[in-house]
Design a protein around this nucleic acid. Structure first.
Lengths: 146, 146
DNA sequence: GCTAGCTATATAGCATACTATGTTTCGAGA
DNA sequence: TCTCGAAACATAGTATGCTATATAGCTAGC
């Protein structure tokens, strides 16, 4: 019988949910949620990027990013201006209100990450990051059929 | 500037999405999706459990399990019968059609897990599981505020 | 310079996850 | 026994993620 604690897939999913929950609870009062983090990181220096570039930076699918950006626009965190170089695109950047929250976001991420790995030695922390990078690479490559 | 590849939270979320996507693609033809895996594991030997027990086994919140069970009932994978010991509960078990799929589910999980960790040495695989268990434990303990 | 195909984004529909809250039943103590 | 709080489940609302598909603009080749 398979033990869920020994299943990399199950444990990774569990850890990811706990990470997201910790971030959401910390940033709820700021009106920010976990799915928005990649956008804050990509635009945190005042950059203006297309939706495609943001989608690539977050490693999610395009409709997911479109929905996240819609919510962030609704909440006044980002604004879009037409891309002069391409009529299909808009250049997306944080609003002043969004930029004001970058530090809070960074602090929350650092705090949650630090708490998460606090039980690991420095060597174990490095090994964990290396292992999960290897896993991501492997999973990105496998075909749909066994 | 923070590098997303060095953020345990980001990488864990990414890996979890890739795990789920790999499972969903393999099991789509069987009419099964990743959120149902814990139910299959808990009931795969013909057990009959309450929703509360399933919620605990999957480590998710109660309304999430309720929705998953609704979909599985709709799809003919599980059935509920009144719990003789408690009028508030039902005992949930896999239908014959659900039990028939247990092997397919097990195979898919084993295949995805094996592919995911194929780039790690046996020692690294063990270390990864130990590390992520430590991380889950740490994240389950942290309070909402830093 | 026209068209045919490609690219960027939008939209629809669904699954999985959360919080907050309502409803029903159980159980313990007055 | 009766009530009141707790427990089990249901429901509502929202966010994040996916696939599939539509639409609009760009671009290469003729």
């Amino acid at each position: 019988m398979l033990d869920r604690f020994q299943s990399p897939g199950y444990m990774t999913n569990w850890a990811a949910r706990l990470f997201a929950r910790a971030i959401d609870r910390r940033l709820k009062s700021a009106g920010i949620s976990s799915g928005q983090l990649p956008v804050f990181f990509a635009l945190g220096q005042g950059e203006a990027l297309t939706q495609k570039a943001l989608t690539h930076a977050a490693a999610i699918e395009q409709p997911t990013m479109a929905a996240t950006l819609s919510r962030m626009e609704r909440d006044g965190l980002i604004c879009r201006r037409p891309d002069p170089a391409d009529g299909r695109s808009a250049l997306i950047s944080l609003t002043p209100a969004g930029l004001e929250k970058v530090e809070v976001v960074r602090t929350a991420i650092a705090s949650v990450n630090a708490a998460a790995i606090s039980g690991l030695s420095p060597e174990e922390q490095t090994a964990y990051l290396a292992a999960i990078q290897t896993i991501v690479t492997a999973l990105a490559k496998i075909p749909d059929e066994p």
